[in-house]
Design a protein around this nucleic acid. Structure first.
Lengths: 204, 204
DNA sequence: TGCATTGTAGAACGATCGATCTAGAATGAC
DNA sequence: GTCATTCTAGATCGATCGTTCTACAATGCA
């Protein structure tokens, strides 16, 4: 065999995430990365190939760690309407506590690298599809059990929720104001509520 | 006096907008800019100071040309509810025709430069405040004349519309799909509609 | 016609970029 | 211990970055 790695791949990958997350792809240099990961440039290239491949690994790790697990827990522990509310409220809380204004690495990537890079665009779009699917499952379940209005198609409501999620992340990076973000969310949640006239019409 | 300029400041500024719009701040080099503007690097620095100042000028010019005038026309020519719908539908149409996936220069700037640059953040936030104010005026007017539901506060609806605008711009850059963007918009417009129960309750 | 002033083109600056090379250190197989 | 292999640190590569310098061209004023 040969000489073993002196670092843990997972933990240096998380250091790389911190760099790319805070400054984006272009503005992060390979030297920044190597310093933060506490490995040499040669080790970085040896282990991850090049800067682009490292970014891809970092982005995928970010999704796997930050999104998939959280969604699973919400769907297990909360009724659908509450899961949607908890998810979006949590995003707002994170945005307001985000002193570095890092935002969401996926939204940042959606604007900086996705438009010009088909490979990374697929990673970003995959996440968006999965987030939309989470919202869609919640809305459909809520519509079935009567806790979410069925006036709007579940598909459209899921799309709206995805759009609102992206919008919150954008606004928070230039205007992290509680009133703005919470005010934005209120009408969306009201839209999910079952309306006064809705049940009557259904019973006729 | 002295030797006169050989270029028109407005038109080279528009060339600079094209560069920064398509690739962002970091990924656009001063040489890219000078080539597209058809002036020498020396003239660029002589006329605009440095890359950062040029970006600021370009961004401000983009807002002044692309947003202010469009909003004025919509508010003059359309009733408030229709003005909102026309504005957002137009954004979707632009996004779907955007073969280069340039998106909106202001949204791009909100994520790339606003978080780390107080000066540019002010330019971006100023635009967002003005867009929110446009939506707010429309919603208020619509609520007064009965064409927009008054169940939600005009302030919150305006914030939501701003968030949806940002969300559309983000999604379009990685998934420019008509179904997604138009589906997203439908429930928002439905939220503005006066509901069946609303008038009855008001008359009691 | 000089002179002062500003604009221009292109070379050049030092710094930094992503990436690679060199030399040597650390392992298991033999 | 020897060897093949993989890892490491640090120097180094050519390219490109934002910016400035040099030399000269074009103007109004004297």
């Amino acid at each position: 065999m040969a000489r073993p790695r002196e670092f843990d791949e997972q933990s240096v990958l998380e250091a790389a995430i911190q760099c790319f997350w805070a400054r984006g792809y272009e503005a992060t240099s390979v030297r920044d990365l190597a310093d933060r990961m506490e490995i040499s440039g040669a080790s970085l290239y040896n282990a991850f190939g090049d800067k682009h491949a490292l970014f891809r690994r970092a982005l995928e790790h970010y999704v796997a760690q930050g999104f998939a697990e959280r969604v699973r827990r919400l769907e297990e522990q909360l009724p659908p309407r509450k899961a949607i509310e908890a998810f979006l409220s949590d995003i707002i809380a994170r945005s307001l506590n985000d002193k570095q204004r890092k935002g969401c690495m996926l939204v940042n990537a959606a604007l900086e690298v996705a438009p010009h890079d088909a490979e990374l665009r697929r990673v970003v779009a995959d996440f968006q599809v999965r987030a939309e699917a989470f919202f869609h499952r919640c809305v459909e379940a809520g519509q079935r059990d009567g806790t979410i209005s069925a006036i709007q198609p579940a598909k459209d409501l899921a799309r709206l929720l995805l759009g609102v999620l992206m919008g919150i992340r954008v606004l928070a990076r230039s205007r992290p104001e509680r009133e703005l973000l919470e005010g934005l969310l209120r009408p969306v949640l009201a839209l999910l509520d079952v309306h006064n006239g809705e049940l009557k019409r259904a019973k006729r």
